[in-house]
Amino acid sequence: MATGGRRGAAAAPLLVAVAALLLGAAGHLYPGEVCPGMDIRNNLTRLHELENCSVIEGHLQILLMFKTRPEDFRDLSFPKLIMITDYLLLFRVYGLESLKDLFPNLTVIRGSRLFFNYALVIFEMVHLKELGLYNLMNITRGSVRIEKNNELCYLATIDWSRILDSVEDNYIVLNKDDNEECGDICPGTAKGKTNCPATVINGQFVERCWTHSHCQKVCPTICKSHGCTAEGLCCHSECLGNCSQPDDPTKCVACRNFYLDGRCVETCPPPYYHFQDWRCVNFSFCQDLHHKCKNSRRQGCHQYVIHNNKCIPECPSGYTMNSSNLLCTPCLGPCPKVCHLLEGEKTIDSVTSAQELRGCTVINGSLIINIRGGNNLAAELEANLGLIEEISGYLKIRRSYALVSLSFFRKLRLIRGETLEIGNYSFYALDNQNLRQLWDWSKHNLTITQGKLFFHYNPKLCLSEIHKMEEVSGTKGRQERNDIALKTNGDQASCENELLKFSYIRTSFDKI
């Protein structure tokens, strides 16, 4: 039985969820670079991206490699990797027998973001014989899940209580170790020597080791999670996991709180800001991140802002960003909400898709409305799209047979046209069989910064309504002859009103 693990408890099935942008060198404390989270699957090609990484700022997932063999891993080693800020997950990587050479110096898994409450997941690794993470000293947050690894031993010899604050939620089941077939031998045991430290858990006094050649490092209890030197002297209180010299914040392997210019500090002093819960960055760093993602459509890219001495992905609820200094300031009234469309555009074809934009005031991208039916549609669209004030790209209304009016965009005031449909149009209306009105132009103002209007096959939309939009939106004169079809717009509506004058002759039985 794995020490510190839980057996036999019912657990939810383990679901495996399925960018080499360097964020800056980590400095003297770390020998390499800070790398983003990685999802490495199918083959070993991307694994080489770990070569210079000291910190993975995010998670590391290595999974679904069915053609790899043990010899493929023999020359692979990433000794610079010290810390993973989120979680480490391995799933069905064939041929991998140990992690001792792959990650010989991995010391800390912070667990800032977890995989279903777990910071370390080893699942269905069919050839893994031992973990071998002999320098792993601290899992700051989260638990361990090690399950269905039929060859995995050296679990009962690990004292997880020396690595985690609590072992109650560890789930370590259905491994070879369960069948008591392992016969784990710690260093020196074969020669009758006791080389590794022994600890007591559940009444068992057991030597602690990761492999037959690597003991588990056990520091004096007084050192807590700070770690200790090879001689057993406690590291500085700002260290986490390990250090090369005692009581020196510049000799830590990793930091308990924050890293700044080669030393570990309790908090980031001005003019620095907390970033990702582990390091200090200056304003320029946060500003660069903001600008890199301002026009990016890459998933996970955030326009970072500053709030409460932190550089964070977005302002919290009730705050909006001051564009001059990136500071989050309290909103006066309802907060603006910028919604970034991942692929640059979004099609609204149902109430469900409209709900995804609920509360958005600025759309960074283009909207395509293609709704053919739905219950209580006008009210639903207004509830979900009615706060949109600005669209950076274009607005396209296409084959939306259920629409009679666009009044559900009740606050839309600006279409920038930074991206144009077919390279020309910022407003595009095609084949809307029941569209009769755009907006009530006596109450609604709309500016279209650039781009043209396109109207074709809107049989109940009168040309007068379209011409009014040209005047109000500032697009009059931009359109070419064929942009607004004269014969297919309003051709099934009563669009022309003329005053009919009647004269009559009164007659009676005795007068003409």
Rank of each mutant, 00 (worst) to 15 (best):
H28A: 14
H28M: 09
Y30R: 02
E33W: 13
P36Q: 13
G37Q: 10
N42A: 02
N42E: 01
N43I: 04
N43A: 06
N43E: 05
N43G: 10
N43D: 06
T45M: 09
R46I: 01
H48V: 10
E49S: 15
E51K: 03
I56Y: 00
I56V: 06
E57G: 08
E57H: 10
E57F: 02
Q61F: 00
I62T: 02
L63K: 00
L63S: 00
F66G: 00
K67G: 01
R69I: 06
D72H: 11
D75Y: 14
D75M: 10
F78K: 02
F78R: 04
P79H: 07
P79Q: 08
K80E: 07
I82C: 11
T85R: 12
L90W: 07
V93K: 01
Y94D: 00
Y94A: 04
Y94T: 06
G95M: 05
G95S: 07
S98G: 00
L102I: 05
F103A: 00
N105E: 05
L106D: 00
V108A: 09
I109F: 01
I109C: 00
R110Y: 06
S112Y: 01
R113T: 03
F115L: 01
F116T: 01
F116G: 00
N117I: 00
N117W: 03
A119W: 01
A119P: 01
L120V: 08
V121H: 05
E124Y: 00
M125P: 01
H127L: 14
L128S: 01
K129Q: 07
K129W: 02
L131W: 00
L131A: 03
G132S: 10
Y134W: 14
N135Q: 09
L136F: 11
L136W: 01
T140V: 08
S143G: 11
V144I: 15
I146G: 00
E147A: 01
N149G: 03
N149Y: 00
N149Q: 01
N150V: 09
N150Q: 09
L152I: 06
L152R: 01
L152V: 01
L155F: 02
A156N: 15
T157V: 08
R162E: 06
I163F: 03
L164R: 09
S166L: 05
E168Y: 11
D169S: 14
D169A: 05
L174G: 13
N175H: 07
N175L: 06
D178H: 13
E180D: 06
G183D: 12
T189V: 10
T189P: 06
T189M: 07
A190M: 06
A190T: 10
K191D: 11
G192K: 10
K193I: 03
T194S: 13
T194D: 05
N195W: 14
P197M: 09
A198D: 14
T199I: 10
V200L: 04
I201C: 12
I201L: 10
N202C: 06
N202R: 09
G203D: 14
Q204S: 08
Q204I: 13
Q204V: 06
V206Q: 15
W210C: 04
W210A: 02
T211E: 15
H212F: 08
Q216P: 01
Q216V: 03
Q216S: 02
K217A: 12
V218D: 08
P220T: 15
K224P: 03
S225A: 11
G227Y: 04
C228L: 01
A230S: 13
G232L: 09
H236K: 02
S237V: 09
S237E: 07
S237C: 12
C239T: 01
L240Y: 08
L240R: 05
G241M: 00
N242M: 08
C243T: 00
S244W: 12
Q245T: 08
Q245G: 11
D247E: 07
D248R: 03
T250N: 13
R256V: 05
R256D: 06
R256P: 02
R256Q: 11
N257F: 05
F258T: 07
L260A: 13
L260C: 01
D261N: 10
D261H: 10
G262R: 08
C264H: 02
C264I: 00
V265L: 08
V265H: 15
C268L: 01
P270D: 11
P271N: 06
Y272G: 02
Y272R: 01
H274L: 06
H274V: 09
F275R: 02
D277H: 14
D277G: 10
R279W: 04
R279C: 04
C280S: 00
C280H: 01
F283Y: 13
F283D: 14
S284H: 08
F285C: 07
D288A: 13
D288Y: 05
D288T: 03
L289W: 04
H291P: 01
N295D: 06
S296I: 07
S296D: 12
R297S: 09
Q299P: 13
Q299Y: 06
Q299A: 07
G300A: 10
Y304A: 04
Y304H: 02
V305D: 03
V305T: 08
V305M: 06
H307D: 15
N309L: 08
K310R: 14
K310A: 09
K310I: 12
C311Q: 01
I312F: 02
E314S: 04
S317E: 02
T320K: 05
M321L: 03
M321H: 15
N322F: 04
N322T: 06
S324Q: 04
N325K: 07
N325T: 05
L326P: 08
L327E: 11
T329C: 09
T329A: 10
T329Q: 15
P330I: 15
P330T: 15
C331K: 05
G333V: 14
G333N: 15
P334H: 06
